[in-house]
Amino acid sequence: MKATIVTGPGQTDVVDVADPEVKPADVLVKIKACGICGSDALYISMGGLPPHQGRMALGHEPAGEVVEVGRDVTGINVGDHVVINPIGAPSGIIGNGGATGALAEYLLVENAVRGQNLEVIPAEIPFEVAALNEPMAVARHGVNQTKPTPADKVAVFGAGPIGLGATIAYKALGVSHVTVVDLIGSRLEKALTVGADAVINAGDEDVAKRLIELHGTGDALWPGKSGTTIYLDAAGAPSVINTALATAQRGARLGVVAVHKEPVPVDLINIMANEITVVGSMGYPTEIFEVTKDLVTSWEKYAVIVSHTFGFDEVQDALRTATTPGAADKVVVTFD
């Protein structure tokens, strides 16, 4: 079969690899769609992750169709459409330094257990939308880390795939008001489409002033604070942290799900005096199939997140597009 491999720093190739061997506890999935993540650009630039540098398989956002089922597997049948948990592979995280990747024609799901390392989805869900399951689990974990309640007023910074997924998650959890902040008008339009109550264009609006208008005046030791109770950084820019902490009222929560490439200085006196909670988020310890239920129920809403699709024969173009800043929001590779 053919698979996409990182073959050196800045270099990827589609190569022939051995067909997977299906053992009694395994399931073989024909990949039908696989999203490209921002982390893929990092792996490519590094030449792959140890211990597979120079020959690392790419792809960790898969959806596909079951084509072979080991004799000991239960609850999974040939023809089932499935989403897959990349961190549930015994041979290492799929497409993240493990032995296998999903930007390939087939993926072996070892020790396959439904609800643990794969889950069946209805056949009517488009595969390119199903491939969002993994990044949407990242977004859902970021949301869960901020412990939202219906009474909260939320500001999501960044209307890329994770920010949009977080917006959907907050509204699905019943949050009363969600405002999305970004610099790009088309992304803010998507935020409104997926359920945001309001948007702020940080390029031409005073974010702090608009948050006070939208969420009221906050309770704090110093004036000028917003009634926003939760801030989520899905942008990864120092200005987001600075704006959130400068605007945060007493007891506000700041969740960080975006990757910051450099340290960001913070005013600890402000954090102490206003008892602001800052919480990080990484991966999806329990959310990989929690988000599947909402994805199935509201797939048309999630479909808005996908901006570009490429066939597997165009995978190099897909990678270039996905890793070029500003060229795309969410790129998904589809397979015949």
Rank of each mutant, 00 (worst) to 15 (best):
T149S: 08
L58N: 05
A139R: 03
V143P: 07
K147M: 10
T149Y: 09
E61I: 03
I121T: 04
P51H: 01
P51M: 06
T149C: 03
A63I: 00
Q53H: 12
G101V: 11
A130Q: 07
N85M: 05
P90F: 06
N85Y: 02
E124H: 15
I93E: 12
R140V: 02
V109N: 01
E105A: 01
R55S: 14
G64N: 01
L132V: 01
V82P: 06
V143W: 08
N77W: 03
G64M: 03
L103G: 03
D80N: 15
G92Y: 11
V113Q: 13
N85Q: 02
N133M: 14
I93R: 10
V66S: 01
V83S: 12
P86C: 14
Y106K: 15
I84Y: 07
E68G: 09
G115A: 13
A131S: 06
V66G: 00
G59D: 11
I94F: 03
V69I: 11
S91A: 14
N77Y: 05
E128C: 00
G101I: 12
V83H: 07
R71W: 06
L118W: 11
I87Y: 01
P86I: 13
N111L: 13
K153W: 09
L132G: 01
G64C: 02
A57C: 12
E134F: 09
D152P: 07
K153Q: 14
T146P: 11
D80A: 10
Q145P: 05
N77E: 15
G79V: 02
A63Q: 06
D72G: 03
N133V: 07
G92D: 12
D80V: 10
G88A: 07
K153D: 13
E105L: 06
P122C: 08
I125R: 01
N117H: 14
G64R: 00
L108C: 08
L108R: 05
Y106P: 04
R55A: 14
G64K: 00
R140D: 02
P51W: 04
T149K: 04
Q116C: 13
N85R: 04
K147A: 08
A130V: 06
I121W: 05
G54F: 12
L132C: 00
I125C: 04
G142Y: 02
A104R: 10
E128M: 00
A123S: 15
G54M: 14
V67G: 06
F127W: 09
A89G: 07
Q145R: 15
K153M: 07
A104F: 13
N111P: 00
V82H: 07
A104L: 13
G101R: 10
H81D: 01
D152M: 09
E65H: 02
G75V: 02
R140Q: 05
E65S: 01
G59S: 06
E119S: 10
A131M: 03
N111R: 15
N85S: 02
I94V: 12
L118E: 08
G95L: 11
H141F: 11
G70P: 09
F127A: 04
V66H: 05
V73R: 04
V67S: 03
G95W: 09
N85L: 03
A112F: 13
E61S: 06
K147C: 08
V138A: 04
N111H: 15
A123M: 04
H52V: 08
E128P: 00
A89D: 15
S91I: 04
H141R: 11
G59C: 09
T74F: 02
S91W: 13
A89L: 06
G54H: 13
K147H: 10
N144Q: 15
I121G: 04
N85W: 04
N111G: 15
A130K: 05
S91F: 13
R55D: 09
